[in-house]
Design a protein around this nucleic acid. Structure first.
Lengths: 232, 232
DNA sequence: CGCGAGCTTGACGTTGTTCAACTAGAGTGG
DNA sequence: CCACTCTAGTTGAACAACGTCAAGCTCGCG
């Protein structure tokens, strides 16, 4: 048991190291790692809250999260879904410290809190690591732009096809998967009503493109989905 | 005449310096400046083209540009409008070199081409300047996310109100301005049809919120516009 | 067994797009 | 100086997409 935990921690540490150690020294890494706190999140818990100041990043080693935004009228929107291993919250450290969206667990998660001030100290003296962060943020920017374009030009059918492919390829990495999103959340990801999601999934199902049984989904014809997502 | 040009160049140079010199040394700046090329763009000309590799940034000292995207089906979308002075094209240097959208002059522009390879050399050895870039990209990311949210949750009336305020406050910096966008382009910015733009502008006009005479627009009641943009 | 949350379905109204016709203004050439 | 044409802008009507609403269903769980 003791041994198991040791192994697990070692493996997590290596993951984190892999993500950063090419860019910072061993010393800097140890400093960062030693100051970080192990933490668990249950499904539904908020890792980083919209509107609050960023005091830490979260490096998740296990689990899945959504980037969600709630507007003044109470409507929700999911910007994207991410899964471990991943560093969360990096985009706004050096711009201003207010989180523009929340990050919420959609299944139980494990990870580390990384102190932003400590990180800043390391970054300021380390151009390579800063470049790495720059790459990270550039990537997020790019994703966001594509999201915007997709939303602007595609109708719901195309968006849903696109998101099914994204989930299958990038998140669950399989043709068959069990959604850990409710229909409501799926709708918030697409940016439409839950009824629309239901009808469209049914349509795809009836056309034999996918198979839907509750939350279990099988992608039968990814090519066709791809075509639908391209057309709109 | 000669003297005028000298003065003009000096003033441009100072602008560029202002944007970067706190972060790089005098030497580095001179190196960057000396290798840059003065260039003019006429209205409609493309500064950076979607799908091509980035070989240079553009620092514009005069004029206005749109960030525009064209999808496979030929539909256009305007991501945002920017005006001089501004550094354009920074977001994707360190991620990959392909431009994900075009930048096109919407009025005659003047500026400098900055060689990306030269810039990279400077950046790699200069953490402060990298941080500045990080801030820049973070800002763009943030804008993009807000754009996404706006598009997802607001209907056309709200979007148009929002964009009118943006143009008035951030671009033209006045309650009265003359659009240098066609109705079609305005629609591409909003993400709707040009007819919808026309009808909505007319509606605002009839309600006394704005005055529209061709391309000349006067914002009479910014408070009301703000309310409309918040509600949706 | 019964309750409740999430899911599903169909009817209906609203929003926004598309299309076609028309108008106004800016060049162009005789 | 007057047709002619070309483009951008405008208008209204028909139509499609999508959201909202209300009702019924399913399934897990106490």
């Amino acid at each position: 048991m003791e041994n198991n935990k040791e192994n697990k921690l070692d493996s997590d540490k290596n993951l984190l190291k892999l993500l950063s150690s090419q860019y910072i020294t061993e010393d800097e890494f140890e400093q960062l790692y030693d100051s970080s706190v192990i933490i668990q999140f249950k499904k539904g818990e908020v890792l980083l809250k919209q509107g609050l100041k960023t005091t830490h990043l979260v490096f998740i080693t296990k689990g899945m999260v959504k980037f969600n935004y709630q507007d003044n009228s109470g409507k929700n929107l999911i910007l994207t879904i991410a899964k471990a291993p991943s560093i969360l919250g990096g985009a706004n450290i050096f711009y201003d410290n207010i989180n523009i969206f929340s990050i919420t667990a959609i299944e139980d998660c494990e990870g580390y809190l990384i102190d932003v001030e400590k990180l800043k100290n390391i970054v300021i003296n380390n151009s390579n690591f800063t470049l790495k962060l720059l790459e990270l943020v550039s990537g997020m920017f790019k994703t966001s732009v594509f999201n915007f374009i997709s939303l602007a030009h595609k109708q719901v059918t195309g968006r849903i096809a696109e998101i099914l492919l994204y989930l299958s390829r990038s998140i669950y990495e399989s043709d068959k998967f069990t959604l850990n999103l409710s229909r409501q959340e799926f709708a918030e990801f697409v940016g439409c009503s839950k009824e629309n999601v239901i009808n469209t999934l049914r349509k795809f199902h009836n056309e034999g493109i996918i198979e839907v049984t509750g939350k279990h989904i099988i992608i039968n014809d990814p090519e066709k989905l791809n075509k639908i997502s391209k057309v709109g």
